[in-house]
């Protein structure tokens, strides 16, 4: 009997707990909830946190939505700028449910698996349309520019945000846009390759600048050195000539000495010249009249008649 009572108590407690789970639901601070009765949403959504009563499924059903700002990033998609450049952009947005009652009618179904994907799909379409339209009114230099004064990055973001916000308000989705920003800006693959080619060409310009500047400077340095060497040598040559001239001038002071006896001086110069001219190996042919070979004159010789 005691055991049966215990079993009944356990059963009763379990029933109470499970009944509570069926009849009571909680709404968190971060949530907003809409109760539907046989599919018809209540007039006023629950926005305050707490525990609330409901009839069990299938009479009433509770749809809970996150009322915090939710983030969404659109696809990395192609757009054409006003100067004809194709770029890829992706933006992130923050959105939140502003009116859960309207939201549940526009996006019915399970919040996680149906509503949220539907919202993101709608946002994706609106975002892509607004983004392409706004980017199409600007040149690429408004988005990317080495001069920050020329950059209109923030203004373009604001234009896209305003365009998306006006479309969301016009369609009354029950959501509002909180913020928007560029997440990625890039170029299609084919354009990227051309940018790479240009960057390579820029580097080649730098390389040539450096290499040929080096050669230029080297040539200038060598040329200057050659010129300086030539100057040095020519000055040295001139100095040498001057020195030689000075020597000649100095030597010329001895000439009056020789003038005292020109005959002797001439004779001495002649034999000096003879000595210098015969300095090298030479063949000399003399006859017997040439002194000192005249000593051979009148020596007995063989007459031609004595020859055989």
């Amino acid at each position: 009997m005691k055991r049966n009572l215990l079993t009944l108590v356990i059963g009763a407690v379990l029933i109470i707990i499970f009944a509570l789970l069926l009849f009571v639901f909680q709404v968190r601070q971060s949530e907003t909830a809409v109760i539907t009765t046989f599919g018809k949403p209540a007039a006023k959504p629950i926005t305050e946190p707490g525990a609330y009563f409901k009839w069990p499924w299938p009479i009433q059903k509770v749809y809970k939505y996150d009322q915090r700002v939710q983030n969404f990033e659109d696809k990395y998609s192609q757009s054409l700028t006003t100067n004809g450049v194709t770029i890829l952009t992706s933006v992130y947005v923050g959105w939140k449910i502003s009116d859960a009652g309207t939201f549940i009618q526009k996006f019915p179904g399970d919040p996680a698996t149906v509503s949220l994907p539907n919202v993101q799909s709608q946002l994706e379409s609106i975002l892509r349309s607004a983004k392409s339209a706004v980017i199409g009114q600007h040149p690429l230099s408004d988005l990317v520019n080495a001069d920050p004064q020329e950059l209109k990055f923030d203004a373009i973001e604001k234009e896209i945000e305003a365009s998306v916000q006006s479309q969301l308000q016009g369609k009354n989705y029950g959501i509002e846009l909180e913020f928007l920003g560029f997440k990625k800006i890039g170029l299609p693959e084919s354009v990227t390759q051309t940018v790479f080619q240009r960057m390579t060409a820029e580097r080649q310009v730098k390389i040539n600048e450096l290499v040929y500047d080096g050669e230029k400077q080297a040539t200038i340095i060598k040329s200057a050195a050659d010129r300086q060497a030539a100057d040095t040598l020519s000055q040295a040559s001139a100095a040498a000539t001057r020195i030689q001239g000075e020597g000649v001038a100095e030597a010329a002071k001895t000439l009056p000495v020789f003038q005292q006896n020109p005959e002797l001086a001439t004779f001495l110069l002649s034999i000096n010249a003879l000595q210098q001219s015969l300095n090298q190996r030479s063949t000399l042919i003399f006859d017997e009249r040439t002194p000192p070979f005249n000593l051979f004159q009148n020596l007995p010789t063989n007459s031609p008649s004595q020859q055989p």
Binding site: A229, T232, A240, I243, Q244, V248, A251
Partner: peptide
């Protein structure tokens, strides 16, 4: 480096040249 070499060699040659001339002058005198 080459400029230094060129200039130094030129200066050396110039020095030699003037010295030789000087010696010649001396010798001549």
């Amino acid at each position: 480096a080459e400029a230094i070499r060129t200039n130094d060699l030129a200066e050396a040659a110039a020095f030699t040249m003037t010295n030789v001339a000087d010696a010649d002058r001396q010798k001549l005198e």
